[in-house]
């Protein structure tokens, strides 16, 4: 049987019979699968019909929740890749935007700003989420992941969306801002749900963000 030879492996061998082995690090096939599946998740939530939520049954659309979930679950870079793949394939003409729309045509529509922001939103949310999952105690995950989700939304999605509406609908920034306000309550609900679901996933499948 092989015996560990170097001094530092002998020390760790004192605790167990064999030294802890060095693993190969990232698994690219696994990352690609996660990116592809989460791009699909954003698409499925984008064309889900509006769902009545809460005691008043206010219908909300779920497209932005897919982006939040992607950042929260995959972290910054894979999150950026997944949301980027979704946006690029949608722009090329895959009918994966809300209402089964797709193609460059959506760049002329009112939601252009929101759509183009998605990859950056996933990146920002993912950065915060990665720090949270690595550093914070699990009981803080839900509130902190909520901050990550709503943070990405406030810092990236909404400003870009307002700008897009202002440009494409020929309205002032202020008017676009008031149109955007409609989405805020739904956004809070979606961010909370995404945070709770993502916390569950990081507990159930720690391999996703452990690196």
């Amino acid at each position: 049987m092989m015996q560990p030879q170097s001094a530092d492996t002998v020390i760790s061998a004192a605790e167990s019979k064999h030294p802890q082995r060095r693993t190969r690090g990232g698994n690219s096939a696994q990352d690609i699968a996660l990116i592809g599946v989460f791009a699909a998740l954003i698409a499925v939530l984008a064309f889900a019909p509006p769902i009545p939520v809460g005691s008043f049954g206010v219908p909300i659309t779920l497209q932005t929740m897919g982006v939040a979930l992607t950042g929260l679950a995959l972290g910054p870079w894979r999150g950026l890749a997944a949301a980027g793949l979704y946006v690029v394939l949608g722009l090329l003409g895959l009918p994966i935007f809300a209402g089964f729309a797709g193609g460059f045509g959506v760049l002329a529509g009112p939601s252009a700003g929101y759509l183009l922001a998605f990859p950056i939103t996933a990146l920002v949310t993912g950065f915060i989420a990665r720090v949270v999952v690595r550093r914070a105690a699990p009981r803080w995950w839900v509130p902190l992941l909520f901050v990550a989700a709503i943070g990405g939304s406030i810092l990236v999605t909404h400003p870009a969306g307002i700008l897009g509406m202002s440009l494409n609908l020929q309205v002032s920034l202020q008017e676009a801002f008031f149109m955007d306000i409609v989405f805020w309550p739904g956004d809070v609900v979606k961010s909370l749900t995404a945070a709770a679901a993502a916390a569950l996933v990081h507990r159930a499948a720690p391999w996703i963000l452990v690196r």
């Binding site: 167990s16 019979k17 064999h18 030294p19 082995r21 693993t23 190969r24």
Partner: peptide, 19 residues
């Protein structure tokens, strides 16, 4: 799956070194 400790050989090949 790579062993955290110890090793596995298949056909004399280490599964980590010669994956």
């Amino acid at each position: 799956v790579e062993p955290t400790e110890g090793y596995v050989t298949t056909d004399g090949l280490d599964t980590v070194e010669h994956g």
